[in-house]
Design a protein around this nucleic acid. Sequence first.
RNA 1: CGGGGCGUAGCUUAGCCCGGUAGAGCGCCUGCUUCGGGAGCAGGAGGUCGGAGGUUCGAAUCCUCUCGCCCCGACCA
Length: 490
Amino acid sequence: MADDKKLPTRAEDFSAWYNELVLRAQLADYSPVKGSMVIRPNGYGIWERMQRALDDMFKATGHENAYFPLFIPESFLKKEASHVEGFAPEVAVVTHGGGKKLEEPLIVRPTSETIIYHMFAKWTQSYRDLPILINQWANVVRWEMRTRLFLRTLEFLWQEGHTAHATHDEAEEEARRMLGVYREFMEGWIAMPVITGQKTESEKFAGALRTYSCEAMMQDNKALQAGTSHNLGQNFAKAFELQFQAESGEMAYAWNTSWGVSTRMVGGMVMTHSDDNGLVTPPKLAPIEVVIVPIWKSDEERSRVVEAAHKVKTDLTAWTGRGATDRLRVRVDDREGVKPGAKYYEWEMRGVPLRLEIGPKDLEKGSVFSARRDVKAKAALPLEELPESVARLLETIQQDMFAAAKARREANTHRNVTSYAQFKEIMEGPGGFVYAGWNGDAASEAKVKEETKATIRVIPDEEFRSPEAPTTCLVTGEPATHEVVWAKAY
RNA sequence: CGGGGCGUAGCUUAGCCCGGUAGAGCGCCUGCUUCGGGAGCAGGAGGUCGGAGGUUCGAAUCCUCUCGCCCCGACCA
């Protein structure tokens, strides 16, 4: 009986834990259409905070928002050979409109490269029109066979940046810059450490020259690709005749990049930080940072304590120490008929980072009682300078969550793995990230995937590489051309 | 699309084998007492048993068809 109030635990069934948590924390709910979901206010509030932070970062790096339509002529998808090959199986096609069969079917965008570069071509004549730095916030549709809340659904929300440049190097710089922006966001806001690097040929985006990605480790030791940035080269420019006249007078094809992150990050946040009691949200993304629970026995106490609770909320939200527009996000739970303990469990399930309890004893002492969501730590905070101490505590929580996630990743990262037998043991057992040598051959990559389900997540950027580069390929024993990170992935 | 499982109240489900007209827990509503880690008592609302057809005096239960969902595998941010 008490058991149906508890979540399945991560240890006994990670996947059941995740699904149940997403529903119970009211992040999302299943919609009547198989494979799609409703994002509820609790979940959407987190997404909105993600959007705002990222959007500011995109603007700061010179991008502007625009909006391109949902429907794309089917013929557009076919113009770039590897792109159509990559996406055709998962595209939803509209064949009828207004009660009539359409002359040309429309596809529902799985991504917008084709329509965007078609438009860019229309807008570009000279090198003076470049670069074009555009972002759009949109929904996209990919008809997946197997779906999971936030991680893979038929429709999802994302942003896709699309840029056009005069030179390869400029495009390359842009692709790398945005990868850096993603990393900064994931680590600074989601408190989710990531490894950055380049994707192998077999894992790169259909139509790209090179794909870079941010890879995070979830609590089941599986990798989550949390964001990607592509140098598209001139593939789309050629397919859509995106040309410009260079300073020299000659015509040249533009160089493009595209980069995106999605509501999948909400799933990443859940699987990085949450525990068996429910959601744990990093303060910076929490729609509610502080919940105040008043505690009383008699009616007389109730009126005093509830009044004090609202006064504390007012003091906290009026404080401008984080800037006039970044106020503390506070909620008072003064519902009657629900006992304090029940409220604690409820707000813990919903992931509120900090709880303040205010009862008669606290009022006497001139303090409130605080409880952190991320760790079991409780302490009295003096009412004097409460906003400052609350803000400090939230900042500490944010940092501690990042540190804990990073420590967990490191503890489950294996380096100096040279024997394939040892590798198999790791993948069949605890899993995690394995740094190892690779001969650069897609065949050895495919063999490992076939035999262990693990794939090369990324060819890591320099700062993540081992002090001594592996010299032999994990699979074949041949000389290694790269050090790569292997893991099972979502 | 293959293999496995399941549809009974908002949720979890009992009943089905052996037909007799639906019961529980949680949640919800009202009232009183409670309230520093998931409250108690009393009263109450809520179900064409996924849908269609058949067998039968009678179907949640037996038969046929159908729809949907979940899990496992083949595709993927």
